[in-house]
Design a protein around this nucleic acid. Structure first.
Lengths: 259, 259
DNA sequence: CGCGTTCTTGCATGTTTATGCCGAATCGTG
DNA sequence: CACGATTCGGCATAAACATGCAAGAACGCG
């Protein structure tokens, strides 16, 4: 059976994301094509920025391997400021679901020592942050950890979430627009978020300014449904106003509520 | 198995950060390449400022915090040594369950970059270590995280484990005696370990010397059942001999690489 | 159908890279 | 100083690479 070029390259990309590396001779053997063709593919993909070419094959571009870890270091100050503001919104003693995302990790870090909370999360990084902290009752949602999301969003995870009614869920989001509402870049991730959000009594999303106005592909939560937002200090005032006008409870990282 | 140049250099860098020093002959042996190539690597890395070249190998650049830690925290050093020895026992491509415990965390840390493995764990700290690592397929066992154990060992966790048959399980243990075998200090934890061990095709436990001869309250695994052990270099020879005589596959973590 | 175009692929070409080996120079130790 | 271990540069070789070219398939168009 012969595959199209784009199919082959997609498969190479999958293998790359899966294993972090691909070797030209191996690919040539597994596809039954010459190494020259493989190299051509890899060159094209490297030109598109999908991988990094090395002698003997290709590897992931640096930073793709640990998206969460690297994203943290970039705008730590802003993130932690946002985290503090969002953490202040969590009622003590409540059951809170922490969705995946570096912003939510920042919120977890910002919770003051000894704060009593039942934390539910599908993200190992967040769970590790909570593990061993006094006052935190921690529930981990299990399942296969999706490498792109860094959290469990498969059927096993969904089933476990169905048994839980959190008081509040902290939604991570890849984009927020006036019309599209909260949205995510990955289909399964978005589906998972929708389910968690529906199961929760309230939803809250902390959004960095770079995500404001960005239109991600998959819908998570509309702006007319009950929702709380925490935005950064420098968030576009017009957009914030417009969002608040839709009935969303908007709050700034500096502290003053708009509505 | 041939590694790319950048992979090899990344592994050297990891080992460097881990131990503060690397020796050219050791690296040559462990990678199966000539010392000349190792020296070339070290020269390149030194040119990039990633290490400092010295006679016989390389050391961290001055002004790093790691060497202090490795020299002072001897137990950490011992753990990582044990971890490396145990990590060497894991077959590439297999499904491995990582039980709770700092020793198992050390094993996870010791896995070389790009090692392909399906890791199943009930411990957020270990999951966080694996999350985002290339080549690792990660499955998280969910449930309430027992604060004393730092892992999910409740009914939800048990039910998820029942659906998995790992090729190998890495058992954490609080004590190991000739008569009692592997044992744990916490009842539920021991019960969970027994179940995981029973579900797995093979069991392996890395035991620090301070646990040898310690009799913990709750039985986990007898010494006559199929079991592999990794002991430290300075483990009591008589006891090790006696354990091996019961049919247990005993292996030592030799500290040859470090002086 | 016939023809030209485009795309893909494998092969042949020369070039670059990685590696091991060797000899001379250098370093550390007694 | 003497000796062995280590290092560096050069050299050879095999593998991987880029490039050009030609054969073949898919496609559009008259």
């Amino acid at each position: 059976m012969d595959t199209f070029v784009i199919e082959r390259q997609a498969q190479i990309l999958t293998q790359l994301r899966d294993q972090g590396r691909v070797s030209a001779p191996d690919l040539a053997r597994s596809f039954g094509i010459s190494e020259d063709t493989v190299r051509r593919d890899l060159r094209e993909m490297a030109a598109r920025g999908e991988c990094e070419r090395v002698y003997g094959g290709a590897v992931l571009v640096a930073g793709e391997t640990v998206p969460l870890k690297t994203r943290i270091g970039q705008s730590l100050d802003r993130k932690s400021m946002l985290g503090r503001a969002a953490a202040a919104q969590l009622p003590e003693g409540s059951v809170v679901f922490f969705d995946a995302g570096s912003t939510n990790l920042a919120i977890a870090r910002s919770l003051r020592e000894g704060f009593r909370l039942t934390a539910v999360t599908n993200t190992p990084a967040i769970a590790a942050e909570f593990a061993g902290r006094a006052g935190i009752e921690l529930v981990m949602i299990g399942g296969r950890i999706d490498p792109a999301v860094g959290a469990a969003i498969d059927a096993t995870a969904l089933r476990q979430v169905e048994a839980i009614r959190p008081d509040l869920c902290l939604l991570g989001a890849c984009g927020l627009t006036l019309d599209g509402g909260l949205a995510a870049d990955i289909f399964e991730d978005a589906a998972f978020k929708r389910l968690v959000s529906a199961a929760s009594k309230r939803s809250l999303a902390a959004i960095t300014s770079d995500k404001l106005g960005h239109d991600a592909a998959f819908h998570v939560h509309p702006l007319n449904a009950p929702l709380s937002l925490v935005l950064e200090d420098d968030a576009d005032a017009m957009l914030a106003q417009a969002i608040a006008a839709r009935g969303v409870d908007v709050c700034r990282a500096s502290g003053a509520a708009i509505s």
